[in-house]
Amino acid sequence: MGHMLELFVRSIFVDNMIFAFFLGMCSYLAVSKNVKTALGLGVAVTFVLLVTVPVDYLLQTKVLGPDCVVEGVDLSFLAFILFIAVIAGMVQLVEMIVERFSPSLYASLGIFLPLIAVNCAIMGASLFMQQRIGMEETNVQYIGGIGDCVAYALGSGIGWLLAIVGLAAIREKMAYTDVPKPLQGLGITFITVGLMAMAFMCFSGLNI
C-alpha cells in the first residue's frame, strides 16, 4: 500500500508525463488554448490510461513474457504492435461508451477523443510500465502488480491533467500580453512550458 501511494505521488510530481518525459506534447500544445476543453481532454486521457495500462500489464506478464505461451519463447518484441492495438481498441470502446451515455461530453470533446489513440502519453505509459516490471523490487519506480499499475496510471493521468490545465490557464492570460511577433503562438508557449518544467524540477527530491 505504501509503495502504491509512493508510485502515485511520484508519477504526478516527479515523473510527470509532460515535464519530465515530454509525452503527449502534440495534443498538449494544440488543445491548451482554453481551460474547459483542456480539462475535458485531461479527464479523457486519465480514463484511457487507467484502462490500457493494467490491460497491457496483463498482456505483458501473461502472454508476452518469457515462457508464457510456449516454453522457451520470449515474445516481448511483439509488444509495440499488441500495445497499440489494445490502445486503439480501447479508445474506440471509450468513444462508444461516452457517445451512448453522455452525448454532451462527446460533443464537447469532438475530434480529440479518437485522437487519444495516437497520444504518446498513453503508449509511453505502457512502455514505461513494461520497463519498470524488470526493475528491482526496492526501486521506487518498480511495478509489481495490478495495484501498482492502477496507481501509476492514475498518477500519470492526473499529472498530465494538472499540466494541461495549468498551461491553458497561463495561455488564457497571455492573450493580453505583447509578445514579439515571431515568438507569438508556438514559440512563447514552448518557453512557458520550459519555465513550468523548471518549477516542477523542485519536486525531484520528493520522498515519502
Binding site: F19, A20, F22, F190, I191, V193, G194, L195, A197, M198
Partner: peptide, 8 residues
C-alpha cells in the same frame, strides 16, 4: 542537460 532546457 535538464529536460526543461530543451523546451526553451
Amino acid at each position: 542537460v535538464m529536460p526543461a532546457m530543451s523546451l526553451i
